[in-house]
Design a protein around this nucleic acid. Structure first.
Length: 413
RNA sequence: CGGAGACUAGUUCAUCGGUAGAACGCUCGCUUUGGGAGCGAGAAGCACGGGGUUCAAUUCCCCGGUCUCCGACCA
């Protein structure tokens, strides 16, 4: 990608009114633009990052046996009435058609998926079953806030599992715990598995919490990693000594990036989702639900990985691996060299953003590198001659290397 | 849904009763080139909408809208 053609501009000034780091940096860097409160457009850079995160999630869900589907955003009112949530789900968007039909705008998909599954499974042989989607969700939040951390429209992965009994569910719940830990690790986040309340469905759930000032939740946890509970439910106090000798428990603000919980038979009952067991008897299906806010995850990564100059993307989700900066491009030899390196990197399938702007100062280009946050900055100028100057976004050190060396360093990602 | 603040050029802001100004960005020319460069010229605004008060309203008052923040809420 050539910077001169990229749709989206960087900005020197912070957007008015925005306070959250993710909103400021993502807007200034040309990743997103706000449409209305809590609703954002994704520009090319932003969509690349969002897609990379979604693909990590997708891979891990597939590894855990999930099958990807795509459910509807416009949903059947009568199914929401059947579960009682047409009236009780506060954040439910309701839309009316010209013909006076009413629909729910999907905030979650039990009401769509359970009736669908009912049509297609009937035997214990069909279970267990694990289905997921990555889709835009709508929630009529009383207050959208903190950039893309809490929006009214957001991208979410929701997986639903279906089991013949509690024991089978428990086994899968453990698989998903491991899967979730892997997802967040791959996204460069240290997510703390936290015990939380189960809402109206069950006694407990597990949340994946990332320590950050911008967080809305609070947890009490052991830095040694063997205990964490949401303050909403915990009976343990901050400062209590960890039973395993890891020192005092801490209370911190956190962002909830994922949540897994047992649904038991709450929705199976509502829609009479049953299967025939080995004895030919009808049994209710036991369900679990597992969510990850993809766009919130993107915002969380920015909240955690940035400095005063801009974003520092983990390599796994960075929009490009290499930010190739051409200086002195008015000089034909330098320009020729830069274009060749750009072509060569593309040939090697290394993701590269080439700042090919002429008559733009070095300072402006470097400032853009720091703001956008691509892992490797590679400079070609009349000073670098036939070498390449490389600097990692996360480090200060500058090195001079050759093109084959650059390819070797970046191709492994 | 309560409370507070804001709304003027693409963006960030100034003007605070007398029909609008800067910086950045953008266009053109020249000059520059290692941390958001310099000079010159130019384009760009129904001052969120609607009512009042006034000879005169972007400015004061009222109603509405939108955005942000603080709370409440968050299956």
């Amino acid at each position: 990608m050539k910077y001169s053609k990229l749709f989206g501009k960087t900005s020197k000034t912070d957007p008015k009114d925005e306070v959250s780091v993710n909103a400021k940096l993502l807007m200034r860097g040309g990743f997103i633009r706000k449409e209305v409160a809590g609703v954002y457009n994704f520009l090319p850079l932003g969509l690349i990052v969002l897609t990379k995160i979604a693909n990590i999630v997708r891979e891990e869900m597939n590894n855990a046996g999930g099958q990807e589907i795509l459910l509807t955003a416009l949903q059947n009112k009568s199914n929401w009435q059947k579960t009682g949530r047409w009236d009780s789900f506060d954040a439910l968007f309701k839309v009316e058609s010209r013909y006076e039909a009413e629909y729910a705008l999907g905030p979650t998909h039990e009401e769509v998926l359970v009736p669908l599954v009912k049509q297609l499974i009937s035997s214990y042989k069909d279970l267990p079953l694990s289905l997921y989607q990555i889709q835009t969700k709508f929630r009529d939040e009383p207050r959208a806030k903190s950039g893309i951390l809490r929006g009214r429209e957001f991208l979410m992965k929701d997986l639903y599992s279906f089991h013949s009994d509690e024991g089978d569910f428990d086994k899968y719940y453990k698989v998903m715990k491991k899967t979730y830990r892997e997802v967040f690790k791959r996204c460069g986040l240290d997510a703390i598995e936290t015990k939380a309340g189960g809402g109206s469905f069950s006694k407990f759930s597990h949340e994946y919490q990332v320590i950050a000032e911008a967080g809305e939740d609070e947890i009490i946890y052991c830095p040694g990693g063997d205990f964490s509970e949401n303050v909403e439910i915990t009976e343990v106090k901050e400062g209590k000594e960890c039973d395993l000798g890891h020192g005092p428990l801490k209370k911190v603000k956190v962002i909830e990036v994922g949540n897994i919980f047992p649904l038991k038979t709450r929705f199976s009952e509502a829609f009479d989702l049953t299967f025939k067991d080995k004895n030919g008897k009808d049994q209710l299906v036991v369900m679990g639900c597992y969510g990850i806010g993809i766009s919130r995850l993107m915002g969380t990564i920015v909240e955690v990985h940035h400095d005063e100059r801009g974003i520092i993307w983990p390599e796994s989700v960075a929009p490009f691996q290499v930010h190739l900066v051409g200086l002195d491009l008015e000089n034909p030899d330098v320009k020729d060299h830069a274009e060749k390196v750009y072509a060569e990197l593309q040939k090697e399938k290394i993701e590269v953003l080439f700042d090919d702007r002429e008559n733009t100062s070095a300072g402006e280009k470097f400032a853009d590198c720091d703001l956008i946050g691509i892992p490797y900055r590679v400079v070609i100028s009349k000073k670098t001659e036939d070498k390449l100057e490389i600097k990692k976004r996360s480090e200060k050190e500058i090195k001079f290397i050759t093109l084959p060396e650059l390819i070797k360093i970046t191709a492994s990602n």
